[in-house]
Measured scan of single mutants.
Amino acid sequence: GIQEIVAMSPELDTYSITKRVKEVLTDNNLGQRLFGESILGLTQGSVSDLLSRPKPWHKLSLKGREPFVRMQLWLNDPHNVEKLRDMKK
Rank of each mutant, 00 (worst) to 15 (best):
G31W: 01
F68T: 00
D77V: 03
L62D: 15
N80V: 02
D86I: 15
K83C: 07
T14Q: 02
W57Q: 01
L84P: 00
V21W: 01
K19V: 09
V24S: 03
F35R: 01
P10T: 09
G1Q: 12
K55R: 09
K88Y: 06
P54G: 00
R20S: 06
S61I: 01
L34H: 12
E4D: 11
G41R: 07
T26S: 13
W74P: 01
M71I: 04
L60Q: 03
K19W: 03
S38T: 07
Q32W: 14
D49S: 11
Q72S: 08
Q32D: 13
N76I: 05
D77W: 01
M8R: 15
E66G: 02
W74D: 01
D27S: 13
G31L: 02
L60K: 08
I5D: 12
L34P: 03
L40T: 01
V24I: 14
I5T: 13
Y15V: 13
M71H: 01
D27M: 13
G41P: 05
K19G: 05
D27L: 11
L84A: 03
R33I: 10
S16M: 14
S52N: 15
R20V: 03
V47T: 15
V6H: 08
I39Q: 03
W57L: 01
T18A: 13
L75V: 03
N29D: 10
K83A: 08
L60I: 01
K59T: 13
N80L: 06
I17D: 04
S38H: 14
K22G: 05
S52T: 13
V81R: 02
I17L: 15
D27H: 10
I39P: 03
K22F: 03
M87G: 11
G45R: 11
E37S: 08
V81L: 08
E82L: 09
W74R: 02
N76S: 11
Y15D: 14
G1C: 12
D49H: 10
S48P: 12
N80T: 04
V24F: 03
V6T: 10
M71P: 03
S46N: 10
G1P: 07
I39E: 04
K59D: 12
E4N: 12
Q32M: 14
T14R: 02
L51Y: 03
P54A: 02
R70I: 07
V6L: 08
V21T: 03
Q44R: 15
I17A: 02
W74S: 00
V81C: 10
H79R: 13
H79G: 13
A7Q: 12
S46Y: 08
L75R: 02
L84G: 01
G41L: 04
K22P: 01
G36F: 07
T26R: 12
I5K: 14
I17P: 04
L30T: 02
M87L: 12
P67W: 05
L42K: 09
V6Q: 09
L30G: 01
Q72Y: 11
K59V: 08
I5L: 14
Q3Y: 10
K22M: 14
G31D: 15
M87I: 13
F68E: 04
F35K: 01
V47R: 02
V81A: 07
